[in-house]
Amino acid sequence: MDIISQLQEQVNQITALTFNTFGTFQTEALSVRLSQNFPEPPPNPTEDAANFSEQP
């Protein structure tokens, strides 16, 4: 195996670990309100079959 292939393999491993780490942070982290100046986000609408045809 040449040095370029070894380097690519190491980069791929680091990338996989990074994506897995940030994915875990996104799923496990609690919601935090960063500032009182921003309004609350609207609640997620429920997906109805009647409204589905109206969506783009």
Rank of each mutant, 00 (worst) to 15 (best):
M1A: 11
D2G: 14
D2F: 00
I3Y: 02
I3M: 01
I4V: 11
S5H: 01
S5Y: 00
Q6E: 08
Q6H: 04
L7G: 06
Q8V: 11
Q8I: 12
Q8G: 05
Q8D: 06
E9Y: 05
E9M: 08
Q10F: 14
V11P: 01
V11T: 05
N12S: 10
N12G: 06
N12A: 13
N12H: 03
N12V: 06
Q13Y: 14
Q13P: 00
I14H: 11
I14A: 07
T15L: 08
T15H: 08
A16K: 14
A16R: 14
L17V: 03
L17Y: 13
T18V: 05
T18L: 09
F19Q: 11
N20L: 12
N20F: 11
T21V: 04
F22G: 00
G23A: 08
G23D: 06
G23V: 03
T24V: 01
T24S: 03
T24L: 06
T24I: 02
Q26E: 05
Q26F: 10
Q26G: 01
E28W: 06
E28T: 07
A29W: 07
A29Y: 05
L30G: 04
L30S: 06
S31V: 03
S31P: 01
S31M: 02
S31E: 10
V32I: 07
R33E: 09
R33D: 04
R33I: 03
R33G: 01
L34G: 05
L34H: 06
S35L: 05
Q36G: 02
Q36L: 09
N37M: 11
N37C: 02
N37P: 00
F38E: 03
F38T: 00
F38N: 00
P39Q: 07
P39G: 01
P39L: 08
P39R: 09
E40N: 09
E40P: 00
E40I: 04
P41D: 07
P41I: 03
P42D: 10
P42K: 14
P42W: 13
P42F: 13
P43M: 07
P45N: 10
P45W: 15
P45T: 10
T46A: 12
E47H: 14
E47C: 10
E47L: 15
D48K: 12
A49V: 15
A50N: 10
N51T: 13
N51Q: 13
F52Q: 09
S53W: 15
S53N: 13
E54S: 14
E54V: 15
E54L: 15
Q55W: 15
P56A: 13
